[in-house]
Design a binder for these strands. Sequence first.
DNA 1: TTTTGCTGTTACATGATTGTTACAGCTTGA
DNA 2: TCAAGCTGTAACAATCATGTAACAGCAAAA
Lengths: 236, 236
Amino acid sequence: MSTPSKLNRKRILVADDEPDVLMLLNLNLQRAGFEVIKAEDGERALKLAREESPALVVLDLMMPGLSGLEVAKQLKAQPATARIPILMLTAKSDEVDRIVGLELGADDYVTKPFSPREIVLRVQSVLRRSEPAEAQVDELEVGPVKVDRVRHEVLVGGEVLDFTATEFKLLTVLMERRGRLQSRDVLLNDVWGYESAIDTRTVDTHIRRLREKLGAAADMIETVRGFGYRMVEDFQ
Amino acid sequence: MSTPSKLNRKRILVADDEPDVLMLLNLNLQRAGFEVIKAEDGERALKLAREESPALVVLDLMMPGLSGLEVAKQLKAQPATARIPILMLTAKSDEVDRIVGLELGADDYVTKPFSPREIVLRVQSVLRRSEPAEAQVDELEVGPVKVDRVRHEVLVGGEVLDFTATEFKLLTVLMERRGRLQSRDVLLNDVWGYESAIDTRTVDTHIRRLREKLGAAADMIETVRGFGYRMVEDFQ
DNA sequence: TTTTGCTGTTACATGATTGTTACAGCTTGA
DNA sequence: TCAAGCTGTAACAATCATGTAACAGCAAAA
């Protein structure tokens, strides 16, 4: 995948009893921009999954003690960890045939031997898929501003305007929630992504840039002093 | 981010006699933002398909009573349901030839064991494919570029140009969806195929090669920084 | 076999984007 | 009115995404 961005610094829990594999995955996932937590057995994997709430778990099916199968079952059984995607490592494709796909909620699996690159791509792929489903309404309109999500285009007073990625997301979120106050924290969470260790003042800067581009319609974004920002419900 | 509202979520009908499979598909399709209707046997699947007009049907080939094959035939036989895409689940890959090639128009198939991720990707892919009426059109034209799918030929400014397989497919997908943003992920799925473990940067490379061949018309393909690419609606 | 062309990967350069910081100006409440 | 705390503004450095080119592995063709 493309260069790791700070925004995607997600935590991955890797559980495998073979130190070599653990090291290999650790190295490659880190290089891909992930934060990696390692577990040498099933028990520890379960514990860490609860405590560290990783974005994804890579589980070796064959482990002494608690097998990957068991771990997966228990993860899925508990509400706190049920939604964490699982990528299962299996030795032979036939040994798992239905197990992996069916009996438990592994989201994907990779059979050994695997290339580190493949694992990284799989992890990224599963993560992309489990991100919150988007695309509700295709068109958003407030006053002179119209956002077309399918074309990925913003019209202001009939003219197409260029917005950067962050500006576009911020504008979209505000318009989706027009009339409702959005705190800086909420915006950071929903525009920049959870985990973003970003200064709340940064939101101000981007609001400013938005207003600048909106020109005459800048007042659509109201400042609610001490709390955050709000897109007006109607404009003019 | 907010969950998609029920109104514009797409409805998927899943028919399988194994409760485990039903649960698994339900969970994963819901997580991907679909509304899911479940059927435990063929009869019920037929009934629900007529009543609920789902956007797509996932059918297990092997079911007691009405088999998936039968259900598919009946769906295709009735005008009200004939246009609903069908994704078939099959146990062995050798059953596949029969299904897809000969007996009926299943739009795609997945062999067990499958990973939930694969199913979700397949469903999304089939839905995208069956959306625009244009997908069936033999000739596509944007600006100076004309694609003849039957002859498998591309004319740029009246001249026949050679495109490789990947280039041709990429160009076609972009032209079918002109005006609409296509993320690298979507392009990978729809041009390269669902299970491609390919770097997203590869898309960039092929876009570049396309542009190179398009010459003066290179600007037809717009880069939407941070999101993907888009074929313009009109050119000059 | 050798050759050719296609494909995916990688490294690098570059310009755009982004987050931070400092400071000015404004709002609020005493 | 003033002081304190927010917010707007501008500039800047770091980071990131993309275009570009070169390359190696492969498969098809010769």
